[in-house]
Design a protein around this nucleic acid. Sequence first.
DNA 1: GCATACCTACCTATAGATAGATAGACTGCT
DNA 2: AGCAGTCTATCTATCTATAGGTAGGTATGC
Lengths: 183, 183
Amino acid sequence: MGDKRAELEQVAIDAIKHSGISSVSFRTLAETVDVKSSSVHYHFPTKGDLVESVVRRYSEDFSSELLRIQREHRTLRRRLVALIEIFEEVSADSEMCLCGSLAADVHTLNDASKRLLRDFFATTESWLITVIEDAGSDAIKGLKTHQFAALLMASLEGAGLLHRAIGDAKHLNAVRQLVKAMT
Amino acid sequence: MGDKRAELEQVAIDAIKHSGISSVSFRTLAETVDVKSSSVHYHFPTKGDLVESVVRRYSEDFSSELLRIQREHRTLRRRLVALIEIFEEVSADSEMCLCGSLAADVHTLNDASKRLLRDFFATTESWLITVIEDAGSDAIKGLKTHQFAALLMASLEGAGLLHRAIGDAKHLNAVRQLVKAMT
DNA sequence: GCATACCTACCTATAGATAGATAGACTGCT
DNA sequence: AGCAGTCTATCTATCTATAGGTAGGTATGC
């Protein structure tokens, strides 16, 4: 059960990461997984429902990744580099963070989805603060922990956006260098 | 002459900064400046032409601003803070950088517009490199000049994106703190 | 026999774009 | 000076494609 549904979600996720929510229509989605558009409406009554499901699933998967990083790496630098590498991998496929991509189209989202977006960024920044504090309160020179977390969040989303738009990896690379310089 | 045309461009710029190119239609544009949609097509035959004009105009205005900053401020820190303040001002109106906004929808743009976008980011980063080098080669600790420029570009666009999406100024603030910490 | 997961067929709204008409201003010839 | 031709900026009316969404039917399987 839930086979086509999961497939639809995954295709929608990839499409949004690649070119935004406006590139996702019930028809293209349906064609890709070989059903009719009304069947997509069966699983996701409105486009708002689709986006909600997709953000929820993406956020869960992303949180798992953060936990995995925390488990597999012990130093702050390695943990942050591992996070950057996630962004580099999606960039390598001409994609970007799903939530960053949706953030650009936030005016088309319903309230529930907006809340989920906010939660995604808040959760990710909380994780950043946790791993920074875990490395000792003086881990970052010149910036408060929450400021460094916010800076990384903005840099990663911005660098991902620019990479997808102009195909240049230098911005993500610069974030990597920042982490090496400050940890 | 050129009255309605300039008006149309300005309305389009504001709309894109506020909610992206997909929020701009020939009809809404026409209604806002009180003409018919076919008259918009008279000035801008296709949507691609409109976007090209708009990016060209925005890039020119932005370059003027960069020159003004260079003229009005002498230290690196003041210059960078002045740049950040431009981003803070547009964020205060729930808008973001036009080119950052268009970057999110790059797949809908024609080749000419893509090139103009690329040029905008390249020009802005060149300016950053110039003002950093102007302050002496050891102005930034731990990062190469071009890396710091790329980092600022990504942070500013990312912070602008996040501000518009979730209405939080902390990311732009973090960029400001970074500049204070590193200059 | 009812829920699940799909289908056909359709509706309405909006998008970008085009054809062809018109009113008024500018240009240049006689 | 006056008229013909042309350019500019707009209009009305319409086309085609695509969007999200809905009503109602059908096959499968617990």
